[in-house]
């Protein structure tokens, strides 16, 4: 087969080469025309973190920058910690939602000054212990942590017969092991792993109307769907510690998690670049938690393309977008 395919080669080669040369010439002139675009903004690189809210931020910002400023926006998917190094070197321009990576703030923003904290993206992050509402109806005492005492076995599971506390993704800030110990509860802290795994676990328990108590947070687009309520934990005090990996006396963990603004973090190089995108991204702020939840639910709940979801949001929320644009 091959032999016949490549018969009479010499003439064929000459012809092919000639044809190729000609075509390259044609193509060269054809492509030259297409490269003109709105200049001055250039390329902006935004990093999308591994949760849906972040996808919403990134693509809404991308749509705005591309549509109104003529920027070219590149989206990267670098992990949360390495992305600091990327921003320090100017390989990524901005992260639009950072959940308090204090150690990195110290290293990169304070010490090196290679990244700049640009304040809140309009959202308030809050971590806490959550239970489904049907459970609260059955056990009204679960409203506060004190009501859990003595009822731990309600949360029994195959891996924790004494009562399971569903822990969060290892990458998220948490102190539940210490907190459970400090509160003297008999729950066993069970980590099911990444966020997806945690959601899988509790969404199934909720679908079966079974008891569950877990590490969870707001804003999260699914909170309304799941109808979760927060269990009240001891009030915060001065020495309060939220990060379980820090070495601190047990009593310092005996308090609720704090609420904090979700930070925008820019690369210093980007800030100094003079790009018109800098000002717009500095003003980028969700009007409320529910705005991001809305976009997130389109993306993850209805499986809408992120690009289209962003377009839909921008078109229906022009007043917010105009503020970002400084109009």
């Amino acid at each position: 087969m091959r032999k016949r395919l490549w018969g009479r080669p010499a003439r064929l080669i000459v012809a092919a080469a000639a044809l190729a040369g000609l075509a390259v010439l044609v193509a060269g002139t054809a492509t030259a025309r297409t490269t003109a675009a709105k200049a001055n903004c250039g390329t902006v690189t935004l990093n999308e973190q591994a949760w849906t809210g972040s996808t919403a931020n990134t693509y809404v910002a991308k749509y705005v920058l591309e549509k109104y400023l003529g920027c070219k926006v590149k989206v990267t998917d670098i992990a949360e910690i390495p992305v600091y190094q990327a921003m320090a070197q100017g390989k990524v321009d901005a992260v639009l939602e950072d959940w308090q990576h204090v150690a990195q703030y110290k290293q990169y923003a304070t010490k090196q000054k290679s990244v700049v904290l640009e304040g809140s993206n309009g959202l308030t992050g809050h971590i806490g212990w959550f239970i489904p509402r049907y459970l609260l109806k059955k056990y009204p005492s679960f409203k506060t942590w004190k009501g859990l005492k003595g009822h731990e076995s309600v949360f029994a599971s195959p891996e924790a017969p004494q009562g399971m506390f569903l822990g969060g993704d290892p990458s998220y800030e948490q102190k539940d092991t210490q907190l459970i110990q400090a509160l003297g509860l008999k729950l066993k802290h069970v980590t099911v792993g990444a966020e997806t795994a945690e959601v899988a676990r509790f969404s199934q328990l909720i679908a079966q109307k079974k008891p569950v108590i877990m590490y969870w947070w707001t804003p999260e687009y699914r909170n309304a769907e799941f109808d979760l309520v927060e269990v009240k934990l001891p009030a915060r005090m001065k020495s309060c510690q939220d990060d379980g990996t820090v070495k601190a006396p047990l009593k310092d963990f005996r308090c609720a998690y704090s609420s904090y603004p979700l930070e925008k973090v820019f690369s210093s190089k980007f800030v100094k670049s003079g790009s018109p995108a800098v000002a717009v991204l500095k003003r980028f702020k969700w009007p409320s938690n529910s705005d991001q939840n809305l976009v997130s639910s389109w993306i993850a709940g209805e499986h809408m393309d992120a690009q289209k979801a962003a377009e839909k949001y921008v078109k229906s929320h022009m007043s917010a977008v105009n503020k970002w644009l400084g109009k």
Partner: peptide, 24 residues
């Protein structure tokens, strides 16, 4: 024959690339 086939293949690739550019 194999050598000829190699050259012919390279030529065909070049031609396709050229055509690809021509028809964008």
């Amino acid at each position: 024959r194999a050598r000829v086939a190699t050259v012919a293949a390279l030529a065909a690739i070049a031609v396709t690339a050229a055509l690809g550019h021509a028809f964008s």
